[in-house]
């Protein structure tokens, strides 16, 4: 088998999975909720829209819940979690010698194609995570660990769709 450390100092994926599972469990134990990522970005969208056009923001039904008294502390919680993720990722990247500004892409496509695909993919993910009521972390991973139906449906739909169309966008990757 691959030892503990493989390519470029990555840890063994099963070890990574065990650690991630224990962290998720610890998070459930402390907070009663799991891990999340897209929620914090949603929170910042709400904040920016409010800065730019406060009246419009208050009239936007989907964002209105983030303003005023119903302001859910969970969302601020997610913002701190994300700041931690940035710090944690940076530390691990520094230890593994992976800190570098770069556009990661297949040799078959240009930098611009990669950035365009990343932007388009991000837009879709942002929209999808609203319908899914969470992303891969908040809906799929956390939801399935708690055995919620939504989490499994989202997980199967994400991975099923990605497999179904992988062939058609293979130029982007292989």
């Amino acid at each position: 088998m691959d030892g503990l450390l493989k390519h470029k100092g990555y840890i063994n994926p099963y070890l990574g999975g065990i650690l991630l599972g224990l962290l998720l469990l610890f998070t459930f134990y402390i907070t009663g909720r799991g891990l999340g990522a897209s929620g914090a970005i949603k929170r910042s969208v709400a904040a920016v829209v409010y800065e730019v056009a406060p009246e419009h923001a208050e009239n936007t039904e989907y964002l209105a819940k983030y303003y005023g008294e119903e302001n859910s502390p969970l969302n601020a919680w997610l913002v701190f979690e994300i700041l931690g993720m940035l710090a944690g990722g940076f530390i691990a990247g520094a230890m593994g010698g992976r800190l570098k500004f770069k556009v990661e892409r297949s040799a078959k496509i240009t930098k611009n194609t990669r950035l365009f695909a990343a932007l388009g993919g991000g837009i879709l993910f942002g929209i999808g995570a609203q319908f899914g009521r969470g992303c891969t972390s908040g809906a799929a991973l956390t939801g399935s660990a708690a055995q919620g139906t939504s989490g499994f449906v989202v997980m199967l739909a994400i991975f099923g769709t990605a497999y179904a169309i992988a062939y058609f966008v293979r130029k982007l990757w292989i």
């Binding site: 940035l86 999808g128 992303c135 891969t136 769709t161 966008v169």
Partner: peptide, 29 residues
């Protein structure tokens, strides 16, 4: 939502969590 995220995943190469982590080490994409 899952279907839209699936397309976004294979086209964009990240999900929100992995995107944040990749951004933290300098991945411009």
């Amino acid at each position: 939502g899952g279907v839209i995220m699936g397309i976004g995943f294979i086209v964009g190469g990240y999900c929100p969590g992995t995107g944040i982590v990749a951004a933290s080490i300098g991945k411009i994409d």
